[in-house]
Amino acid sequence: MDNKLPFNDVIDQRHHRRSDLSSFEYTHKAEITSIHKLTEQENLYRIQIIDPAERERFEFRPGQFLMLELPGIGDAPFSISSPPSRKGDVELCIRKVGGLTSFLSRVERGTHVGIRGPFGTSFPMEKMYGQNIMLIAGGLGLAPLRTPISYVQENRSRFNNVDIIYGTKDPLQLLFTYQYDMWRADDMRLSIIVEKPDASWQGRTGMITRVIEEIFEERDDAFFRNTYAIVCGPPIMFKFVCSMLNQKDLPMQKMFVSLERRMHCGMGKCCRCNVGSTYTCLSGPVFDYWTVMNLKEAI
């Protein structure tokens, strides 16, 4: 009699469709179709999933991220900077800070990379219909904020007053300068502020909170009762901004921030992105500020 144990094929048993299998470690092969230098440190990469059907299926929402893989070099999470309507033809704004991003800054157009995702939570744009929106970014925070901005742009009539508030260290670090006029043309008010102006700078100077104070002076309390805020930037920045907004009775659950952590899987397995004990990749990266307040180690 045969005493061999029966083999359980995990794929047949647990994954009935190929798309389920694809949720773990399956990589969409994509091609870098353009590289555009934004600043000394940041490049904008346009990356297109090669298979047209897969590209069409790559649906994401503003605030979600993907895992970008360079075989043999590494993989890391990046928030998507392009409009959701463009699906698997994404743009990633990437700063040269580590091993993967430095290598990426040396690759040419036409190189194939891997994409997994999209992963994580998103900004609940539909909830904000009919409301005022404050889109606030500090530094590289404009990269993830660009997706909700383009969403609002594509659906401008659904939103009431739209403010984009953007602050950087100095004018040379301003990202996506070529889009500012288009945003303004779509009736989104853009306020830019830099900490350290150079000789040619004619705009506002100071911290981002200065712009918010200006808005406080010009709007009444009723305005803030009908407002949502999306805040992207370093923790110290969104902490200040959100506390200010909360003074105006903007509920913390109507403010959304995006957290950045180290990740290897993007799927709630490797634990590297945990804040306290919450997975940034599953419960985030987009959190409302009330949740962030309750997360140990978040700020």
Binding site: L5, Q13, R14, H15, G268
Partner: peptide, 21 residues
């Protein structure tokens, strides 16, 4: 619970777990 029961089951673990008597 973490490796098989969540949104993204981890096949590396599941393949071994399901085949252990």
């Amino acid at each position: 619970k973490v490796l098989m029961g969540s949104v993204y089951p981890m096949p590396y673990y599941a393949a071994k777990r399901k085949n252990a008597f």
